[in-house]
């Protein structure tokens, strides 16, 4: 009797120990995760002089928003360029997203529902794209863009962003379509709908969360893209944020507070987008990988 009791207590203590080590682990991990972002923000509040001190000021002696004002002041050089980069990024990301989704929706649906000859091969080819680094495509695409006269245009970016945006969109959307029972379309077709109507009236409304999620993915992917933009764009007025801020702040000695303010501003749209639509985002990612 007593033995059983003490054994139970030990077990409970064991479980408690696990829980506590889990909490401590999470706490450390949280520190590791947010520390750089906090430091980014703190640095962005410093003057150039305050940043160049050792040991650093853990909190700026005279916090200033000067770095942010500089970025959004359209009358200054820095502000004018930054605002231009920002719009370029928004424009390129939005257009990429729309194109990717419009083209991916029918393709994903077909891959989910139809069994046409060559389907597996084609789907394999689509998925395989996710495996290849941009570099494999860089040289030939650079040549192609040169030939098409697209170097230094946003067209070159949008077209190349589809190389990763489209396969990802197809894969994500297919995951969503896979989870919509085929019986719904079958019922619709029996109820008098054509295949297209069944898709448009029944499946499309149900896949809205998937389309939202896919759009966020495409958008964030395009927003964060660096290597193509870095290679294809040399003109200042065409640059997107990731390449823009670099050329901009590293010309002579690095202006760290300015750079931190710019990266902070650059991160805001995607982080906000992510936090607001987190639910869709997480679901989309795991839908395809975790079959229920």
């Amino acid at each position: 009797m007593t033995m059983e009791l003490s054994a139970g207590a030990a077990k409970r203590r064991g479980a408690g120990g696990w829980r506590w080590s889990g909490r401590i682990f999470l706490l450390l991990l949280l520190g590791f995760t947010v520390m750089p972002m906090i430091w980014m923000f703190i640095t962005s509040l410093k003057t150039g002089f305050a940043a160049m001190q050792y040991p650093p000021q853990w909190w700026p002696a005279e916090p200033t928003l000067e770095n942010y004002w500089r970025l959004i002041d359209p009358s200054g050089n820095v502000g004018r360029d930054f605002i231009q980069y920002f719009w370029n990024s928004i424009w390129v990301s939005t257009l990429t997203t729309i194109l990717a989704v419009v083209v991916a929706v029918p393709a994903a649906y077909a891959f989910s529902r139809f069994r046409f000859p060559g389907r597996n091969f084609l789907f394999f080819a689509v998925l395989l794209r996710n495996m290849f680094p941009a570099v494999v495509f860089l040289v030939p695409l650079f040549i192609l863009m040169k030939a098409l006269g697209l170097v230094n245009t946003h067209g070159s970016l949008i077209l190349t962003y589809l190389t990763f945006g489209l396969p990802l969109a197809i894969w994500l959307l297919k995951g969503f379509y896979d989870n919509i029972p085929v019986q719904l379309e079958q019922a619709a077709r029996i109820d008098g709908a054509t295949r297209f109507q069944a898709f448009f009236l029944i499946v499309m409304p149900l896949s809205t969360p998937g389309i939202i999620a896919t759009s966020i993915y495409s958008f964030i992917g395009a927003w964060n893209e660096y290597i193509y933009a870095y290679t294809f764009l040399t003109r200042h007025d065409q640059m997107t944020l990731p390449v823009g801020i670099q050329r901009f702040f590293s010309e002579n000695a690095t202006d760290w507070p300015g750079l931190m303010a710019a990266t902070f501003m650059m991160s805001i749209p995607v982080v906000v987008l992510f936090l607001v639509l987190q639910r869709y985002f997480v679901r989309a990612l795991t839908e395809g990988a975790v079959k229920h």
Binding site: P181, Q183, L184, Q186, A187, R189, I190, D191, G192, T194
Partner: peptide, 15 residues
């Protein structure tokens, strides 16, 4: 096509 066959169907999972 199913729509032209003029039939009605009840599905196992109701659909």
């Amino acid at each position: 096509d199913p729509k032209d066959r003029d039939i009605a169907m009840v599905f196992q999972n109701y659909a």
